[in-house]
C-alpha cells in the first residue's frame, strides 16, 4: 500500500512529461516560411533510408580510415552536396538519381565492410561524386513556399549530424570487437543499398 502511494505520483508526472513532449503543435502549413524551411530541411535527409545509411557510411568510413579522412570526407561532402543541390534548383537534369543514391549506399557500405583504403584524393572525389546525387535530390525537392536559407541550414545540419553519428559509431574501431561491429554496420548498409538499387532498377 505504501509502495503504491509512493510510486503513483512519480509515474503520473512522468507520463505527463512524456505526453507533453509528444504533443506537437499543429503545422497546417508545414512547408512555409522559416519554420517550414527548417523543418523540411531537417527532415529531408532522414526520410529516405537509402540516403540516411549512405550518410552514416561516410562517417563510418572516415572514422575507420582515421585522420585526415575522418574530417576531410565529412567536410567535402556538404560542400559538394550543395553544388549538386544547385543543379537540382537550376533544373539541370541528372540521370539515374535514385540509382546513384542507392549505388552510393551500396559502395560506401562495401568500403566500410571491406575496410577499403585508397588514395585520399581518390576517396574524396568518390565521396564528392556521390554527394552530387544526394544534393540534387535535396535541390529539386525544396517546397516552393519555404524559406530557402532555412531549408539549406536544415538539411546541412541534418546531414552533418548523420556524418557525426557515423563517426561516433566508428570510434568503436579502437577495439577489435568494435572494429568487427563497424564492418558489420557497413555490410548492413551495403545490403540496404542493394535493396534500393534493385528497387530503382525495377527488380524488387
Amino acid at each position: 500500500m505504501h509502495d503504491s502511494l509512493r510510486t503513483t505520483p512519480y509515474w503520473r508526472s512522468l507520463a505527463a512529461i512524456v505526453l507533453t513532449l509528444g504533443s506537437l503543435p499543429a503545422w497546417a502549413h508545414v512547408e512555409q516560411g522559416v519554420a517550414g524551411g527548417l523543418v523540411s530541411g531537417l527532415l529531408h535527409p532522414v526520410m529516405g533510408p537509402d540516403h540516411l545509411v549512405a550518410m552514416v557510411a561516410v562517417g563510418l568510413w572516415g572514422a575507420q580510415l582515421g585522420a585526415p579522412a575522418i574530417w576531410l570526407l565529412p567536410v567535402v561532402f556538404p560542400v559538394v552536396m550543395a553544388l549538386g543541390g544547385l543543379f537540382g534548383v537550376a533544373g539541370v537534369p541528372l540521370p539515374f538519381i535514385e540509382f546513384g543514391i542507392a549505388l552510393s549506399a551500396l559502395l560506401l557500405g562495401l568500403a566500410v565492410a571491406a575496410r577499403f583504403r585508397a588514395n585520399l584524393v581518390v576517396m574524396a572525389v568518390l565521396v564528392g561524386l556521390f554527394a552530387i546525387f544526394h544534393g540534387h535530390a535535396h535541390g529539386t525537392e525544396l517546397p516552393q513556399s519555404a524559406n530557402a536559407m532555412a531549408f539549406g541550414v536544415g538539411f546541412v545540419i541534418s546531414t552533418g549530424l548523420l556524418h557525426l553519428a557515423g563517426i561516433l559509431i566508428g570510434l568503436l574501431v579502437r577495439w577489435p570487437v568494435g572494429s568487427a561491429v563497424v564492418r558489420a554496420c557497413g555490410a548492413g548498409i551495403a545490403a540496404i543499398g542493394l535493396y534500393y538499387l534493385s528497387a530503382a532498377s525495377g527488380l524488387a
Binding site: 522559416v34 556538404p78 560542400v79 552536396m81 550543395a82 553544388l83 543541390g85 544547385l86 534548383v89 537550376a90 535535396h138 535541390g139 525544396l142 516552393q144 513556399s145 519555404a146 524559406n147 530557402a148 536559407m149 532555412a150 531549408f151 539549406g152 541550414v153 538539411f155 546541412v156
Partner: peptide
C-alpha cells in the same frame, strides 16, 4: 554549403529570407 544553396535559390528566383 548552406550559403551555396541559399545563393543558388536566390539567383534562380526562389523565395528567400
Amino acid at each position: 554549403a548552406a550559403g551555396v544553396i541559399f545563393a543558388g535559390f536566390s539567383l534562380l528566383g526562389q523565395p528567400g529570407a
